[in-house]
């Protein structure tokens, strides 16, 4: 009996199409590597900046919703001539008002401290030699403000379909 089954398996495997692994195939590696590199070429965004952007987005969104940080996906997609930034955020649960308020307060407090730091630095810079650091910090603050605005837009759209993982897009 076992002879027959092994014979059957042999014959069967002869006719069966060769198994090709889809995800780890050379082709898939090439495709995903290229996808990333083309996006970087097209937008001039370095992996470091992307990582920073990702981190800031997580910090910001975490104030309002509890999200699965590891599964957050940030991708660029080409739609015709335009490049779209696709953000997929697995939401664990929405925070209630109290929590949001607390988070916002905490944030405001942190920002207050940061601003105060900047002032001190500026003063010290003025008193001593001109330092680049203070300039850098103010530039960073500007960036943060910009990203806050854009993500708030995303939040409004999130409310409409908060059941699923949201795909919010922002054109770059």
């Amino acid at each position: 009996m076992s002879f027959f089954t092994s014979f059957y398996n042999k014959v069967f495997s002869f006719f069966k199409p060769q198994e090709v692994s889809e995800d780890n195939s050379v082709k898939e590696v090439a495709r995903s590597r290229l996808k990333l590199v083309l996006m970087q070429d097209r937008t001039n965004l370095t992996p470091k900046i992307l990582e920073q952007m990702r981190g800031e987005l997580i910090d910001l969104l975490s104030k309002y919703v509890e999200l699965d940080k590891d599964l957050l996906e940030l991708n660029f997609e080409q739609e015709g001539d335009q490049v779209a930034l696709m953000l997929s955020i697995p939401v664990i649960r929405a925070k209630d008002e109290k929590e949001i308020e607390e988070a916002l307060k905490k944030d405001a407090l942190l920002k207050g401290i940061k601003l105060a730091d900047d002032d001190e630095e500026e003063e010290s810079a003025e008193s001593e030699t001109a330092d680049d650091e203070s300039e850098d910090n103010t530039a960073d603050d500007n960036n943060e403000e910009e990203s806050t605005e854009s993500v708030e837009e995303e939040n409004s759209s999130e409310e409409h379909n908060s059941d699923n993982q949201e795909n919010t897009a922002e054109t770059v």
């Binding site: 060769q18 090709v20 195939s25 050379v26 082709k27 090439a30 495709r31 996808k35 083309l38």
Partner: peptide
């Protein structure tokens, strides 16, 4: 090579380059 998934397919390239 495309059949064994060792090379990107025509569709892959077209999608990447749009």
């Amino acid at each position: 090579l495309i059949a064994t998934n060792d090379m990107m397919s025509v569709e892959d390239v077209v999608e990447l380059l749009a």
